[in-house]
Amino acid sequence: MSEQTLEIPCNIPADAVNPVEPFLRMDRMPHIWCPGCGIGTTVNCFTRALIDSHANLDKVAIVSGIGCTGRVAGYANLDSFHTTHGRAIPFATGLKLANPELQVVVYSGDGDLFAIGGNHFIHAARRNMDLKVICVNNLTYAMTGGQTAPTTPSKVISATNPYGVFEPAFNLVALAEAAGASYVARWTTFHVKQLSRSMEEVLRKKGFCFIEVISPCPTLYQRRNKMGDGLDTMKYYKQASKIRHGAPTAECDLTKSGEIVVGKFVDRDRPSYFEMLNSQMTETLGDRYAEPEVMCEQC
């Protein structure tokens, strides 16, 4: 069946385009993601958030680490950086420090942000660096073959734990809150409306914001655990999720097949990195302090 022979029995205006397309590098499609992978769904939500927040897209930069999720930067029609494994946050920090008017979004996987990159995550949250961190949590190192990640729940079968994971997993939302994040939410790829609303909210909020998106990796996680395909996973998310805004994050652990607490857990105002810098320096130096002019003269 080709496009020419398809009959769509509704009237499609000639100028209709998929609203996601202007946000994608269409010359790089098709993308690499598997059938039923949730990463593309999160990209749709991010796109809608950009539209709804009326962001100036020339001033939005996206930074990814390495992994299936790490490929998002390469598909986004924004200033985009595909960095090294685990280091998206420090790269993004440099970008933000050099050019504070940029809206800097970090878009990466659970392994990238919380295993190899975990140290950078907690420190950026501690500093309340003005970054919007979106973590697609598929509970595994997907790109490299489905190894155990710090997020993989116990009892799960993975490439590196063929007899079941026995280490406790990180609770990412609790970690983010404890480290100092200004905003913490969790959704699944089933919750497209809520997710895009959360993304829109963080695009409008100052400080370190964190959104965890639980997402299927049918190829390497669900299949190995006999949990069906992407659609089965989406149905599980629908059935097992409980929206509990403001729930204590410590109660939001994930298990292999149990309840998934979703919602906005933290939304608070802490002084941002720049505010802390400027107030400390002004306190110490008084008039002698001028807010840093970080752009080089020739630039």
Partner: peptide, 9 residues
């Protein structure tokens, strides 16, 4: 890597 983010900024 922070320095490199700064450079691209």
């Amino acid at each position: 890597i922070t320095i490199q983010g700064a450079v691209w900024g």
